[in-house]
Amino acid sequence: MWSFFHKLGSPPWLYAISGKILQWLLPVTLLLLAVGAVWGLLYAPADFRQGNSYRIIFVHVPASVVALAGYYVMATAGAISLIWKMKMADVAMRSCAPIGAALTFLALLSGAVWGKPTWGTWWIWDARVTSMLVLFFLYVGVISLYEAFDNEVAAARACAVLSLVGTVNIPIIYKSVDWWYSLHQPASIKFTEESSMHSDMLAPLLLMIVAFYCLFICSLLLYMRGEILRREGTTHWVRKLLLDAGDAHAV
């Protein structure tokens, strides 16, 4: 267990193993995305009230779910970085933030596109969209704080503290936004409840959620590999790697 943990902290090992994982995870992800998209967009039945426009949930819901989970991945990496001072945890945390922000943005965008045919407006202050907007700012806050520090270790520690504060706050924020929305919700607008969804719609949705999780892991690993190379650019093993890659290219 501990030797595995120790290995996780070593950049060359992480770089090598992430390469191996990506080799099979990347095709799997693309396959899942393709199957889920085709199933959801072409074969799932149309909603009896919203018609075909509801199909955007096959992007909106997975993006929202994974964006939220991504924050917890980031905070966990931050906690590991604070407790065990592991540099690779810093890299993971640093890599989660832009990916999470992008997913949150995708959720917001798809929510807006969904709003137009459903409610006749691009933006509606619905509970989920509002929470997503707050989450977006939480991600942007972490990225900005990281960029504001000159010292990279201090930046990582500061972001770890901030994201831990965020993990305590996110449930409170979500609950209060829900309460706020129930208070002001006009009776005529009602969200489709996931729990009452038809199983023909639910299955492709679950598949898409799994696909988005895989996509998140792939992007995270790719981003981390980039970060590792940037940070370790002057070390021996990276030089050797680049030289080998150059040789292979020449052959």
């Binding site: 707050v134 700012f137 939480l138 942007v140 806050g141 900005s144 704080l145 504001a148 520090f149 500061a158 503290v161 901030l162 504060v165 965020g166 706050n169 409170i172 924020i173 609950k175 209060s176 936004v177 309460w179 706020w180």
Partner: peptide, 27 residues
């Protein structure tokens, strides 16, 4: 505390903290 050592702390602290203020404002 997180931004005290930074030169441009003023705007940054709003970005970091206002999201956390949401529940207090709501209630």
């Amino acid at each position: 505390a997180l931004t005290v050592g930074l030169k441009r702390g003023g705007l940054l602290i709003s970005l970091l903290i206002i999201p956390f203020y949401v529940p207090v404002l709501i209630f």
